[in-house]
Each structure stands twice: as C-alpha cells, then as structure tokens.
Design a protein around this nucleic acid. Structure first.
Length: 303
DNA sequence: CTTGCGACCTGTTGGC
DNA sequence: TGCCAACAGGTCGCAA
C-alpha cells in the first residue's frame, strides 16, 4: 500500500497520538507477522510462541519516545533503547482508537462494497493497549507487512543490511546526478523503484513523476539529457511533497491513523488510469509491465 | 554484479 | 447472476 507520502503521514499521526504513552497490554493475533531481533524477514513466517512471548513481555510497560520514518519503514523508539520497526508492505494499516472511538465502526477500505467494521477484526494481527484504554491496531489484509522488535544494535544491523538509497526529499540535484551515473543502465522505472538507488518511491509516485517529466518509463537512464534528469528530480520532489500535504493516496486500504483516507488519489494523472485519456493530449493512456510492475504512461507525451 | 520470476496472502474487479 | 482469471501502494530469495 503505502509509499513514502503515506508512511510519512502515518508517522506524523503517530507522533500526535502515541508519544509519551505507556504500553499496558499487548495482543498478538497472528504470530508470523511479528519478529524479535534482526534476523531475516523471510524467517518471519516461522513465528513461534517463544518469540511472541518475548515480544509481549518486552513491550509491556515501555513508553513511546519518538516515531521516525526511513524510506517506507516506521521506527517507533521505546524506552530502554528498544525499537519497533514496521513495514506496511501492500495492505498494512495502523489505526489508533480511544475508548469512546472503539465502539464506532470504521470504514477501513475504499472498495465499493466495503462495510464498516469494529476493531479488532479478522485482519487485525496486533493490538497494543495503552494506559487509559487507548489502542493501536495493526491490520493487514494480505499479511505481507511485519513488525519487529529490536535493540539499538539490531536496529543498526537491519538498516545496514537493507542498504537503502538516499531519501528523495533531502537529496540534492548533485546527489541525484551521481546516483543516476551509478545506475545509468537501468530503465527509468526500475531506477525509481529500486530502494537501494533512491528509497521510498513506489509504483504510484514513479508513474506520476515520470509523466510530469515527459519521460517514458522504459527509457534508459543514460539516455536522459541533463534537462530531463533535472525535471525528473524536481518532479519526484513535487509529487512527493504534494502527496504528503494531501495526506497520501488511498487506493484501497490506505488509512490514516484516525481512519481517514488520503486525498491525493484524485490528483493522480496516470496511475491507475490506463485506457483513460491523457490529461495533456487526450490520447488513451497505455500500460506496460516493467520489472513485474504495471506502469501507466502516455505513449505520445512521454518520450 | 544484474535480471527476471515465483512466493508470500486475501480481496476486488472485469470479462464472459 | 456466477465463475474465474487477473490484478493490487512491496519486497525477498533464488536461479541463471
């Protein structure tokens, strides 16, 4: 589900709601979604009772000190140098409810036949109860996401192993040019999606940035003129910043921590609009698989 | 090293 | 209406 703007909004929401709170109780409903330590994520499916017990025991009575984002990861700092590292992957949601809100059913998806539900529901995998009966729920329909509990050293180990590329919003054009030189053999779409090249961009914002830059997603990076590279660099920042301000894009299940949707979806010029007219030239937008992801683009405007 | 593809899951949509 | 294939904000691991 979420790319950088969505995760950034969740981070901001969590800062407002969670900082200073103390964890009272923890319910793990789906063991394979959680992990303790810095081991490989693929081992997560072996989620064990022992690990779950340790997860619950360690979280208990901890305080929330700070929430940060790196790429599409959320890092929740807890007292006594423990950290909760969360990746929402395609369909993860973090929803916060106070005692009164708990009784109100929530619309957790934007699908046509979506029904309001109370929490926890069948897609709730973790529930954290804070003092005062306020709760944070982790829901994840597709169960691709994960939450892991680590100490300082393990936190560093995780991010070292990930070798994430720079954050696009704090990247200079000089830095962008440098990585474009290093990865010049990639197609533009692959370049933007590769988290070790630049981190935080996914399928929506890569398509949107390429369209606004009039660059075909299949173009090789080495073929881009300096002016095109510059436009791409600026448009990445533009779409990410606009999306952050709009609260992100709610395609299906993306929800803010209060259950609200993001409003950037209506600003999408190409993502999810294959077959519809190009907003500039009115020709039908095309779609094509690039690196096993669907890219939507205008065959006429994007050279 | 890169590339490509299946795997991981459940749910929704569009075509017949 | 029903069924069934294709597809969905993302990585990860493995083979070539």
């Amino acid at each position: 589900m979420p790319e950088l703007p969505e995760v950034e909004n969740i981070k901001k929401d969590l800062r407002k709601t969670l900082i200073g709170k103390q964890i009272q109780r923890v319910f793990v409903y789906t063991e394979k979604m959680i992990k303790v330590g810095a081991g490989k994520i693929s081992n997560i499916k072996k989620g064990s009772k022992k690990q779950t017990q340790e997860f619950i025991k360690t979280l208990k009575n901890k305080r929330i000190l700070e929430i940060q984002r790196r790429a599409k990861y959320l890092i929740i700092s807890l007292s006594q140098k423990h950290f909760l590292v969360i990746h929402l992957r395609m369909s993860g949601q973090l929803i916060f409810r106070n005692k009164k809100q708990l009784k109100e059913p929530l619309l957790l998806s934007v699908a046509k036949n979506a029904v309001k539900e109370k929490l926890p529901n069948k897609h709730t995998h973790l529930e954290i109860v804070f003092k005062g009966e306020q709760r944070l729920f982790y829901n994840d329909i597709r169960q691709f996401g994960h939450l892991r509990l680590v100490n300082q050293k393990e936190l560093e180990e995780i991010f070292e192993n990930l070798s994430l590329g720079p954050e696009p919003l704090s990247l200079s054009f000089e830095g962008f040019k440098e990585i474009s030189e290093t990865y010049k053999r990639k197609r533009a779409k692959d370049f933007l999606l590769d988290q070790r090249v630049i981190s935080g961009i996914g399928n929506i914002y890569s398509d949107e940035a390429l369209f606004r830059s009039k660059i075909n997603p299949s173009r090789k990076i080495y073929s881009l003129k300096e002016a095109e590279l510059k436009k791409l660099f600026q448009n990445i920042k533009l779409v990410l910043n606009e999306a952050i301000s709009a609260g992100g894009s709610s395609i299906d299940s993306f929800k803010r921590v209060n259950g609200n949707s993001g409003k950037y979806t209506e600003k999408h010029l190409v993502y999810g609009r294959s077959g519809f007219p190009c907003p500039v030239c009115k020709r039908k937008l095309l779609s094509k698989k690039i690196g096993s992801r669907t890219s939507t683009y205008c065959g006429y405007c994007q050279k």
